[in-house]
């Protein structure tokens, strides 16, 4: 279990992070430059927050008021970087041995390394140097190295970003097993939506250095609360909404839709949830088809301003057709003011 509350001024912005993670895989999700990696560094102890408190399994790692700052060497944290940070001057075996220093007595290390090589499918590669390994093998070595001394917390910084997409899925499946065996808290830094949905249990969205409240992965993907959350969750169609007496006017789409609350400021729906129809429905947008492709249909709202709608492909209609773009009521997500 990990409690993090920290502030740090860094390179022109202020990092402000506040979250709690149980024995689960928590995604730290955000665009590059949102402060995800700096957050990991603060937790690992290789960077120092200006203020805050970090507690891991009841042990205070950092507390600015109590002046506690445990050095990274004693934090029991495993750190895995995007490019793995294997030491290029050492063989796989020596890299793994580094992970065991202080954790296993010298005499037992060789046997422990053999065990690690076996359990991470690296048998026979012990005497290779990192540059002689494939990307997937390098990742396995790095993962074995940071799990070698049985850390209480695992920090993974975009572990799949350096791999080809066809390799990723299989290695992801291996990682799911590894993380299940690990059983402790894992923070998973990523900007990849699909990866988040496959690997993580809950999501902490980071935006411009600030962390948003943690939500379950289903809620994050299907029920974003704000416009930026909807964009980050991959909603193709997001617009401003002006509510009044149960009806929201959506200027960009030239539509008036019944809305459940008066506090809304926007609305969003996914391309796959909208369909084209010759007749109007409750939630629909009058539009003309601009172009079609194998993947999607692009429409221009008839009464809208500067907006394009992205909708799933529909062979019944051709460019130039006037149609209604219809959205089932439970698929439209109403958005609130950014917290």
């Amino acid at each position: 279990m990990l409690e993090v509350r920290l502030e740090k001024r860094h390179a022109g912005f202020t990092l402000k992070v506040d979250f709690y993670a149980g024995n689960e895989v928590l995604a730290l999700l955000g665009a590059s430059g949102a402060g995800k990696t700096m957050t990991l560094q603060c937790i690992a102890g290789t960077a120092r927050p200006d203020r805050g408190r970090i507690v891991l399994d009841g042990r205070v790692l950092f507390d600015s008021e109590l002046r506690i700052d445990i050095p990274p060497q004693e934090r029991d944290v495993g750190l895995l970087f995007q490019n793995y940070a294997l030491f290029p001057n050492m063989t796989v075996r020596q890299n793994l041995q580094c992970g065991l220093v202080h954790a296993v007595p010298r005499k037992a290390r060789a046997a422990e390394v053999d065990q690690l090589l076996r359990s991470f499918c690296l048998t026979g590669l012990g005497d290779h140097y990192p540059h002689q390994l494939s990307g997937g093998q390098q990742q396995r070595v790095a993962l074995a190295r940071c799990l070698a001394r049985k850390p209480r917390l695992l920090l993974l910084d975009e572990p799949f970003a350096a791999l080809d997409s066809h390799l990723r899925w299989q290695l992801e499946q291996e990682l799911v097993d590894t993380l299940a065996d690990f059983g402790g808290t894992t923070l998973y830094v990523t900007h990849d939506r699909e990866e988040t949905r496959r690997l993580c249990h809950r999501v902490c969205v980071m935006r411009k250095g600030s962390s948003m409240p943690v939500v379950g992965v289903w809620d994050w993907y299907h029920k974003p609360a704000t416009q930026s959350a909807a964009l980050l969750a991959g909603f193709e169609n997001v617009a401003e909404a002006i509510p009044s007496n149960g009806v929201a006017y959506i200027p960009q789409w030239g539509a008036h839709w019944p809305c459940p609350r008066n506090a809304v400021v926007g609305v969003a729906f996914r391309a796959e949830q909208a369909r084209l129809s010759p007749v109007q429905e409750d939630l629909s947008i009058a539009c003309r088809i601009l172009r079609t492709s194998e993947q999607e249909t692009i429409c221009v709202p008839a009464g809208g301003v500067d907006a394009l709608l992205r909708i799933q492909p529909d062979a019944r209609f051709a460019p130039g057709d006037a149609v209604w773009c219809c959205i089932p009521a439970d698929s439209a997500v109403w958005l609130e003011q950014e917290g």
């Binding site: 495993g78 030491f87 580094c98 992970g99 940071c146």
Partner: peptide, 27 residues
Amino acid sequence: LNPEWAACAQTMGLSRRFIFWRIKMPN
């Protein structure tokens, strides 16, 4: 040198001295 080497090494419990002599100097 990749600064991530030192960060990783520290979390593995390796001392400053080890990092300097065994990682920074050889590389």
